[in-house]
Design a protein around this nucleic acid. Structure first.
Lengths: 228, 228
DNA sequence: ACGTACGAAATCGTATACGATCAGTATGTG
DNA sequence: CACATACTGATCGTATACGATTTCGTACGT
């Protein structure tokens, strides 16, 4: 008579493990042993195995035959490639969403941006990051192409996983970011051409990436140049 | 002592089923029954199940809990969304690859394009389609961002699956296509700015989509407008 | 002391068995 | 006759068991 959870055990396992990775409970390099996970979760190995393979497909973990799974490492270039990919798909998503974004959406986004500005003076990087995600979500969530939307979600997820270990909040950048958000909103309000919206959205993320690179003195792979 | 196949059975199953879907042996709507597949392949249900879930993740099949898997339908809008997504990621991939494309690559691509022109007079749509894939492959395969490259591959795969049932070769379009290929090669030869390459590559696919729409008299979802 | 061969422990890969769930059909009731 | 309900067959979901593979420590020979 108990309320049957609609989720199968493999899905529960998937969600649980993914959560722990995103929260940083399982750090990169951590070895995920099927039997142990199954024991901890109270499930059998089969659904856990399925969950692991799914996480592998989304590259949260790496998997080696007859060896097992480990939480995916944070290769710095991985972060860069993820950002670059996200800048492209998110730019497109925002451009596609633009005609469908109404005044109410813009107002909502602007309110979020205002709160971000407050975080700036209170110096609250964590909240700032959360709000930033919310802001962009308002903009691209109306994208009518489900495939692109899916790619954007994956990108953000991946980014969150990467950041959980290397949280980087570049101080000077945050202020610029808020200003760029406002500029983006103005474009949307005025129903600017899709091309312009896309360029702006893409450049916004590219600028974040540049700031990160400059701040952490990474060498950017040459491949990152030339597309923003 | 037998040479152990390096591939696990789940991978073999994955490859086999995917192949049959791409070849059209399993048409859209075909019901994939675990027990039957396992029996046919000579494996047990567990690896087959894993293969199915993987195919689901790449949306070759749809899966419903306690009901089973069916080969993904060919919702016409699905084709459109796939093409649109591909135009975006392939455009980006080509632009990123541009600086790494050497004279040899261009020559190779041009040779392929020449053979495509021959297919035009011989009227050989099947071969034309194959060569077309090879042509674009030469261009984007040098893309240094592995994530984007992966997205392009997925898009082409998905397209192939969709086309296997609705093969569409728009006669007039093929000729334009060859011309656009040549134009793209000229851009690459002259080391045109990445933006221009991206725009051209994206427009090339968008034009194919437009031609398809015009030819088959589909109603384009409004969402497709404005991004090319 | 070093490299190699061997063996044990750990871990994954798959087969089989059985319980759970769903769609469709037959049956009972107003 | 319409509708709700119980049954049945098909199929999936998971647990358990066992074989296959890798890894790593250890003993042995040089």
């Amino acid at each position: 008579m108990s309320i049957q959870g609609a989720a199968s055990k493999s899905e529960q396992a998937y969600a649980a493990i993914k959560d722990k990775i995103l929260n940083g409970d399982y750090s990169p390099g951590y070895r995920l042993v099927l039997a142990k996970l199954a024991d901890d979760l109270g499930f059998s190995v089969v659904p856990v195995r399925e969950a692991i393979r799914r996480l592998e497909a989304e590259s949260f973990v790496t998997f080696e035959r007859n060896v097992g799974a480990t939480v995916a490492g944070i290769d710095p270039t991985e972060y860069l490639y993820t950002m670059q990919t996200l800048s492209i798909v998110e730019g497109a998503a925002t451009a596609l969403a633009a005609p469908l974004i109404g005044a109410a959406d813009i107002e909502r986004a602007r309110a979020i941006n205002t709160r971000m500005r407050e975080c700036l003076v209170d110096f609250d990087p964590v909240r700032f990051t959360e709000l930033n995600a919310a802001f962009h979500s308002v903009l691209f969530e109306s994208c009518p192409n489900p495939h692109i939307l899916d790619l954007v979600h994956r990108g953000w997820n991946r980014l969150k996983a990467l950041r959980s270990s290397t949280f980087s909040y570049v101080p000077g950048r945050a202020r610029e970011s808020v200003a760029e958000h406002e500029a983006l909103l103005v474009l949307l309000e005025n129903h600017a051409p899709a091309d312009d919206v896309e360029r702006a959205a893409r450049a916004h993320r590219a600028a974040t990436l540049e700031a990160y690179l400059a701040h952490s003195r990474h060498d950017a792979p040459a491949s990152l140049a030339g597309l923003n």
